[in-house]
Design a protein around this nucleic acid. Structure first.
Lengths: 141, 141
DNA sequence: AGAATAAAAGAGTTTTTTATCTTTTTATTG
DNA sequence: CAATAAAAAGATAAAAAACTCTTTTATTCT
């Protein structure tokens, strides 16, 4: 479903939500090791998220990546859209160039339900809320 | 969501459902041109589906690909599983190696709803039924 | 100011997916 | 039975995604 990059990105964002804040930033290396994900590759992803203001970062000593209050009050949709592109939520499930209610593909109507589930997955809880649940229930990232 | 290969495959199966039968088989070329999909590539996909008995084929003059009665009374799940692998319906949305009800990833519970939508998409109508709707409503493939 | 630290940016490399080309096998028909 | 049509199989090529390495830039601390 999501690309590998996108999965890494979501997990990294959750990790940052739990372990970082404006006073305690994390280096790529720490995050990469914690998630068991290739470091330099994750760096690229985090930089991209940072450019799009979905996470925050500062350079230099004691610098690193972190989530601002605003960042963690957002939901995961922006993260996904930033990495995989906004089309993941809208593009035709059969890859047809035009596919809409007036010009639907054979699977269009059922795809709506599926897509609804997908949106709920990333939209109806904030990053902070997900992170809280992870902490409370000791979930793995 | 589905790979490009899988999208091609689904569309090709629907095309066969509408335009072929045991008495009238279609060559790869015709299907590829009708769907505007790369011919040799589609050939590979159709061969794979044929090997897995999701579509039927015969060689030689007047040979080609077609759907048997049995083929068109099946649903699309087999087609998807044959091309993209059965994991698409079961694997963790965050790519975690272990993710289950007792050991859920942070998005597990919502992912269930989403996954349900995905399964309905491919499971609760037969290929024949989809094809019928395509014909009746003159949908594009 | 200078050294050290860490992200940002740029330039590769590898692997996987998508696509093509060629040869072989099988069936059909005249 | 020879010619032909079409799938099957194999080998190769191009494009995209995943991953790595090197250099630059910004920040902090002494």
């Amino acid at each position: 479903m999501f690309s590998k990059s996108c999965k890494y990105a979501i997990r990294a964002v959750l990790y940052l939500a739990i372990h970082s804040n404006a006073e305690h930033k994390l280096g790529v290396k720490e995050v990469a090791e914690a998630l068991d994900v290739p470091g330099p590759f994750l760096a690229k992803l985090l930089q991209q998220l940072s450019r799009h203001h979905l996470i925050s970062s500062t350079k230099g000593p004691n610098g690193g990546f972190y989530l601002s209050k605003a960042n963690s009050n957002a939901n995961l949709r922006g993260v996904v859209e930033s990495i995989d592109g906004p089309e993941v939520f809208t593009s035709c499930i059969l890859g047809l160039p035009v596919c809409s209610s007036n010009n639907p593909c054979p699977l269009h109507s059922r795809a709506l339900i599926y897509r609804q589930g997908l949106l709920e997955l990333v939209e109806d809880q904030t990053i902070k809320e997900v992170a809280k649940r992870v902490e409370r229930q000791e979930l793995k990232i």
